[in-house]
Write a protein that binds this DNA or RNA. Structure first.
Length: 554
RNA sequence: GGGCCUGUGGCUUAGCCAGGAUAUAGCGCCGGGCUUCUAACCCGGAUGUCGGGGGUUCGAAUCCCUCCAGGCCCGCCA
């Protein structure tokens, strides 16, 4: 609704001024939308901008397309205030199930996220990737895109060789009840300690990497076993996080099926390719000084070569590729894109996020310095259970456990997704365990409240007459939901939805405290109930897109 | 040394790419509000050289230059 009226107003302004850019901005407290076009016209027309805006406002007021919009000049600004017709149409749309969704669009999108190395459990840094990626996938689907979500399993890297070596040399057995990924971390940390005290082990690691690339069955099986064990642990964590992958793609498959060799053969023919024992690309025409090495002098391929094969495969099977990667991948991501361009292949859109560190410094799986996602989930869930028990002591344990799980997931996902990805953050237990303002549970609570009102109200006839300030502000925000989803998908910025949902909950809570719903009467009651229903529906859709449960009671 | 990102009240943060009207919220602080639709809530108040300095513009948190501070990257690692 908001999108539609914005386009109409912009179109009218263009028609009236003849300018392509009509300076349409948010109106703040003055209006719903405003135009600053009078400033730019002031120069060419050599007139006072206030005079121009007054004239334009008068002209626009008489346009039939803007019949439901109040147009008024205020100084140099042209203000647009959306009227009752807009509110009514918004409410009619917002009460419908699936509000904000659009029909399926042509083309398929492949979105890769998380793809952490299987050398230890997912930690609070990795799950920033998971949550950004999963939220994007949900928003893309809501916006009508067909999406396949993939996890790229780095199963033949040096880290995995170290884990494999550790398993066969250190005899570290799995503890009772220990998750596979946590066990792998202990092996990995111990193996690194061994390497540090005896650097000659590095030769054994190198030899393992050569064996796996040449397809040695025993070594491959050993790698695969370690990776599978870790991945099984990841899957449990991802499930708890409410994040879903359609497919796990194994890096080694691109060696086994010959894709990597074929890709390297193709690259060999490029002018930018140099072979001096190793094989590398000169990407200086793209501004990269660094040599982009694809094959070692011992003949084995490096990660970049396999990644190239993976992306070419994705590009040929999908219409659009999106990768979610840590900011440490910026250089290699840009090199990957440059190389794909050289080959005339499709290249990915990459969403980067900055690092999450601990108060004591950066996280390191190798050094055992990390807070695992499992630990975070456990502690937040325990705290949530305490909270639920205090607030709802009458509920039985199962019910309280269910709410606690839902609240914990909301707290974790929201805490992470609300921060714009380009901001590096420091993990803070106090914030993670806070379920109040600007949190996921806060939004869930608004939803549960709306559900409670609707349940008590029973059947009612919908009506669309809103008069109070808090009602109108709420309804106007509902109108922006489809626009917000559009923006998230267009800009690949999931935090916009997080901010939107929080603002919606804020406005609903204010409305709730100012205007009685069930105790009001007649048209007012019907209209307010319709507003509550529209809000409940929109909050539900927003929460679903954020990967957060929408509990009817909490 | 070079490249990328970040710097907004004591703390966290939106807005920046597509420049506009007194800069968005939260935490914390001060003061109110639960016999009233779920107080995981609401209302009011104090708190800002939008890192510093130049520039462009009628207008700069937003664009350009420069400096400062922090993070990340610059492996025949992934």
């Amino acid at each position: 609704m908001f999108l539609k009226i914005s386009n109409t107003i912009a179109g009218e302004l263009r028609a009236v001024t003849g300018l392509p850019d009509v300076g349409l901005v948010e109106g703040g407290e003055h209006a719903d939308l405003a135009s600053t076009v009078a400033f730019s016209l002031a120069k060419t027309r050599k007139q006072n901008p206030a005079q121009i805006s007054a004239e334009l406002a008068a002209t626009l007021s008489s346009r039939p397309e803007l019949a439901s919009v109040k147009v008024a000049a205020k100084g140099p600004y042209i203000n647009f205030i959306l009227g009752p017709g807009y509110i009514e149409e918004t409410l009619r749309e917002a009460v419908r199930p699936g509000y904000g969704s659009v029909p399926v669009r042509p083309g398929r999108v492949v979105l890769e996220h998380t793809s952490a190395n299987p050398n230890g459990p997912l930690h609070v840094g990795h799950i920033r990737n998971t949550i950004i990626g999963d939220t994007l996938a949900r928003c893309l689907k809501k916006a009508g895109h067909r999406v396949e979500v993939q996890y790229y399993v780095n199963d033949m890297g040096r880290q995995i060789a170290i884990v494999s070596w550790g398993f066969s040399h250190l005899g570290i057995s799995r503890n009772e009840g220990e998750k596979g990924d946590h066990h792998v971390a202990r092996v990995y940390i111990a193996a690194n300690r061994e390497i540090k005290s005896d650097p000659s082990i590095v030769e054994e690691i190198d030899s393992l990497m050569q064996d796996v690339e040449s397809g040695d069955p025993a070594v491959s099986a050993s790698f695969r076993s370690a990776v599978s064990q870790c991945l099984d642990g990841f899957k449990v964590t991802l499930e708890r996080l409410g994040a879903y992958h359609d497919r796990f793609v194994w890096e080694s498959d691109f060696i086994r099926n010959g894709d990597t060799e074929r890709v390297l053969d193709g690259i060999k023919r490029l002018d930018e390719c140099h072979t001096d024992g190793r094989m590398w690309l000169d990407l200086s025409e793209f501004g990269f000084e660094k040599e982009y090495v694809l094959r070692r002098s011992d003949g084995t391929s490096v990660y970049a070569a396999r990644d190239l094969a993976y992306h070419i495969w994705k590009g040929r099977n999908f219409d659009r590729m999106i990768d979610v990667l840590g900011a440490d991948h910026k250089l290699i991501g840009a090199q990957l894109i440059a190389t794909l361009k050289l080959q005339g292949e499709k290249y990915p859109e990459i969403v980067y996020f900055e690092f999450v560190s601990l108060p004591e410094g950066s996280m390191s799986t190798r050094a055992g310095k990390f807070v695992s996602a499992d630990q975070l989930l456990d502690e937040v869930t325990a705290k949530a259970f305490e909270e639920v028990t205090v607030r709802r002591p009458e509920l039985d344990v199962d019910k309280r456990n269910a709410i606690a799980r839902s609240v914990a997931l909301a707290a974790i996902r929201y805490d992470i997704v609300k921060i714009s990805p380009e901001k590096s953050t420091v993990f803070d237990w106090k914030e993670a365990l806070d379920f109040e303002r600007q949190s996921g549970p806060y939004i869930q609570y608004a939803y549960a409240r709306a559900c409670s009102i609707l349940e008590k109200a029973g059947e009612f006839e919908e009506a669309y007459t809103l008069e109070r300030e808090s009602e109108i502000a709420l309804a106007k925000h509902l109108a922006k939901f489809p626009y917000t989803i559009e923006m998230v998908v267009k800009e690949l910025k999931p935090h916009l939805l997080a901010i939107y949902a929080r603002e919606l909950a804020d406005l609903f809570n204010s409305f709730y405290h100012f205007e009685p719903v069930l105790k009001s009467e007649g048209l007012t009651r019907k209209s307010r109930l319709t507003l509550v229903k529209a809000t409940q529906n929109t909050l539900g859709e927003a929460l679903e897109s954020l990967g957060i449960d929408a509990p009817r009671t909490m």
